[in-house]
Simulated scan of single mutants.
Amino acid sequence: MPEPIINPLLMTPLNTVLLVIDMQEKLVPLVDSSEKVLWNVRRLIDGAGILGVPALGTEQYRKGLGATVAPLAEKLGEMPDKLHFSACDAVASQLQQLERPKVLICGIEAHVCVQQTALDLVALGYEVFLAVDAVGARFRKDKRIALRRMESSGVTLTTVEAALFEWCRVAGTPEFKQISQLVREEGP
């Protein structure tokens, strides 16, 4: 059997970290299509767990915006409370310890914390991916413009399903069967 091709453009469980930004109690209900964003973020976290991709989370000013919503908080564990919009300072040491060149981002809000984090990570030399269907903002225009700005700055846009299958890479494994179940879930 030939050796598998190692493509440096692809995310794998060994080269990627999932970063979930500010999915908090007082923010999530304000986001356009919040149920769909929340569902997609949860599927990414579950897929990361199945495939061994480390998942980090952050919270913006927890005292004012509340904790991460319950379905996600229990899956992410302890999260730093940050005041800067960018999550880079809050997760820098964890990212350095993990020594992975790629970061897949999801969360809210697209044009504030997500965008500033993505741009900072690009500036620090990380390859940044953004699951566009697991990112939200209160207003569609803010999300749309943020996606354009991030993409023009070197962030690679993807979707939850594409990311899950990219991490999985091969069919016929027990992990593939679990990922397939996540992909087939009925959305909100």
Rank of each mutant, 00 (worst) to 15 (best):
G77L: 07
D120N: 12
T58A: 01
V155M: 01
V41Y: 01
T173M: 10
A163P: 08
E78L: 13
E25M: 07
V128D: 09
D46I: 11
A171S: 11
L19A: 04
M23L: 12
R144F: 06
I108M: 07
A118G: 03
S93L: 14
L104N: 07
S153K: 06
L98G: 05
E35C: 00
K143C: 05
A118F: 04
L95E: 07
D22A: 00
V170R: 14
A48C: 08
Q178N: 09
Q94I: 03
P54L: 04
V122A: 02
Q97A: 15
I179Y: 07
Y61R: 10
R144S: 10
P174H: 09
I45S: 01
V135L: 05
D22Q: 03
G77Q: 09
E35Y: 02
D46M: 14
V160M: 12
S180H: 13
S33F: 00
A73C: 11
S34I: 00
A92T: 12
L98I: 08
P29E: 00
V103H: 04
D46F: 10
D32S: 15
P4C: 11
V170F: 13
V114W: 02
V155L: 04
L121H: 01
I105F: 03
E35Q: 10
F85Q: 07
N7S: 13
A162G: 02
G57N: 05
I145V: 15
R148A: 13
T58K: 03
T156F: 12
L157T: 05
M23R: 03
F129K: 01
A134C: 03
L10A: 13
Q97N: 14
E3S: 14
S180T: 09
A73M: 09
T173K: 10
T117L: 04
A92Y: 14
R100D: 08
